[in-house]
Amino acid sequence: MSQMLTAPSRARAARRAAPVVASAAVIATLSGCAAAVDTTVEAEPELQPTTEPEIVVDPSYRDGSFRADGAYQSPAGDESIIVVMQLENDIVTDVEIGLYPTSATSSTYQDLFAGGIAEKVIGTDIDDLDVTVVAGSSLTSIGFRAAVETIKAEALDD
């Protein structure tokens, strides 16, 4: 399970901060996790984000590490991704996406995204654009948004 949080991606993600909303920035690191994942909450006190929180949202969320599955459908049927989020002071300090099932911890594919595609090609916020349709990896993002909704419900400080 601890393979989920690989060192390079954690370090890189910690430089970012994003609000706890469905549009949180995603670092699509593909990492392994062999077993089924439940939505557990566990504190990760050693995680130290290196930037100050940029935005604080209205709802209050508990700090910690949250995991959730995001279900979506592919031509092969039901699929699921694993989303792990670190929350601190209502800020997402780390996001990782894992795919079922897992295999080796290191791969060229994993390296590809861990290597910083997201940073080289940043782009413009889709929410800020006046567009009709988004064309890209929509399948995975459906799963991602579903997982974020689960995490938001789980982490809500009530």
Partner: peptide, 9 residues
């Protein structure tokens, strides 16, 4: 859509 970040175009 940016394949590494579905919030970005």
């Amino acid at each position: 859509e940016n394949p590494a970040d579905p919030t970005k175009a």
